[in-house]
Design a protein around this nucleic acid. Structure first.
Lengths: 147, 147
DNA sequence: TATTGTTATACTCTATAACTATA
DNA sequence: TATAGTTATAGAGTATAACAATA
């Protein structure tokens, strides 16, 4: 007979969880990349634009993007050429350049985010309780995932 | 006094949910890319390896990777050169080439997945009930997200 | 000396268009 | 004619190493 424990644990394996998260993450990213493309930006450029909503030095931007500092030169070059971001000299340390978003950059970013139609449909299909649960789980898992 | 409704809705905005999902998705992907890199593969190569666990034609692989068919030629070329995958002629239609993973490819893929230390830590930090909830939410949201 | 940003280099990924061999 | 895969091409992302300016 069954021993006197709580009902058989759901037994969700970590592998199952990782597969599901990979699928959701990939689908979300593809929706983002497609929306960025519709507005003339690569996904890296659009991601950088999101980071510099809060002005940051080139080096810090590289950290946020998870790539080498040398790459950021080209990415910011192109954003600057499009008039969506600009470099500003830092006062405290003249080696440092602060990347800032322009008004036009903010508008483009807003339009890209509004244009993620599948993400909007997906998350708006959830009830209030589910939305709260999902947000909590994401926030709980993020510190360990982004370590 | 409070009207007789359910307690004030949590009011999680879609924007909040998207920001949290973007952060989790990006962190997960970086963990995956880093693990692939430690085993000598790019993230695209590792992702392709995961797809061809079930043999598929070149064209279908392109669809799964979300890129143009012309790119798959190079990706599979490199996997083949590493001995991790191979092309096989399809019997029914001689235009088609089926991509299959090799034994060594399976081993490398397994090692990469086991090497995603942050993802393992993050998901194993959840309790059984939370793991079940997260899996359900992912599966519920995926069909609309991957439309 | 150490750090910030840049440049030079080489490789990979990406889409577009043109090609081939089948169907 | 239509489709599967490839090739050619050009642009962008990526890491490594070396460099100038500044700290």
């Amino acid at each position: 007979m069954a021993p006197m424990t709580t009902a058989a644990a759901p037994t969700v394996t970590t592998a199952e969880l990782m597969e599901a998260m990979a699928a959701v993450g990939a689908a979300y990213f593809q929706d983002f990349a497609a929306a960025a493309g519709r507005h003339g930006l690569s996904s890296s450029q659009a991601k950088a634009l999101g980071v510099v909503l809060e002005p940051v030095p080139m080096r810090a931007l590289a950290g946020q993007l998870g790539c080498d500092a040398s790459n950021v030169t080209g990415i910011v070059d192109r954003l600057e050429a499009l008039g969506l971001a600009r470099r500003e000299a830092a006062e405290a340390d003249r080696r440092v350049k602060i990347v800032t978003i322009t008004d036009e950059g903010s508008e483009v970013l807003q339009r890209i985010r509004a244009d993620m139609v599948r993400a909007h449909r997906a998350f708006e299909s959830l009830g209030d309780e589910q939305r709260g649960l999902l947000l909590d789980l994401c926030r709980q898992v993020l510190p360990l995932l982004a370590a």
